[in-house]
Design a protein around this nucleic acid. Structure first.
Length: 199
DNA sequence: ACATGGATTCGCT
DNA sequence: GCGAATCCATGTT
């Protein structure tokens, strides 16, 4: 059973933590690709100076102000797409960035996707980092706005009951410009997991 | 219209 | 630790 809207309607930092161990499923033309989430980051409203929502709703970010459970995919550095899931009640902008997964199904399709880019390497860690992850899973801006609680193409499955791990929280990556917000401990990852993007 | 810079990644130093 | 690759959303003229 895929995760439903109520799972994503909570605060983004809670959703980010709860998503660890869950599975992203994407059925692509070249096959089904499944990744176990091992690293996430939460982004908030206008008080979070690292969030795209800090300037209010714009053409790009208006999806963040809509209902939870939708995908927010945007391009960065003209090279990569980053995959986020909208959280919180309708009208309150927040999201979780999926930063790293361990590919557990569809390895070959994922590897092919990554090797199509000259800016990412298709080694054994093909979905370790938000740019590579989107590439590997075949997610691009054409998926922006999709409701993953009501889609057969992309959805999230809950973690398995027997999957136990420690959660580490740290400051977020790549947001040095965001003044006091850069210290918020809103990055979460599974301790000692080798697919986490940075130590 | 134009200028700016980014929720990245890799490779070289 | 640093620069390059590369494009488009956003803010300014």
């Amino acid at each position: 059973m895929k995760l439903g809207r109520d799972f994503f309607e909570n605060a983004s930092f809670d959703v980010a933590r709860e998503l660890l161990g869950c599975f992203v499923v994407h059925t692509t033309a070249s096959g089904k690709i499944v990744g176990r989430i091992v690293e996430t980051e939460a982004y908030g409203d206008s008080t979070d100076l690292a969030s795209h929502a800090r300037f209010g709703p714009t053409q790009r970010t208006k999806i963040m102000f809509g209902p939870a459970g939708h995908l927010y995919v945007y391009s960065i550095y003209g090279i990569f797409n980053l995959t986020n899931i909208i959280c919180g009640p309708d009208g309150h902008p927040s999201a979780v960035l999926i930063r790293a997964t361990e590919i557990i199904e569809g390895q070959e399709a994922a590897k092919t996707n990554v090797s199509n880019s000259k800016f990412a390497k298709a080694n054994d860690k093909i979905a370790t980092g938000p740019g590579k992850l989107s590439l590997a899973l075949g997610i691009d801006r054409s998926h922006n706005g999709i409701d993953i609680t009501n889609s057969d193409e992309i959805y999230i499955l809950p973690r398995t009951a027997t999957d136990k791990f420690d959660v580490v929280s740290t400051a977020r990556i790549g947001i040095e410009y965001s003044k006091h917000s850069k210290e918020l401990p809103w990055r979460f990852y599974i301790r000692n997991n080798k697919f986490v993007s940075k130590k």
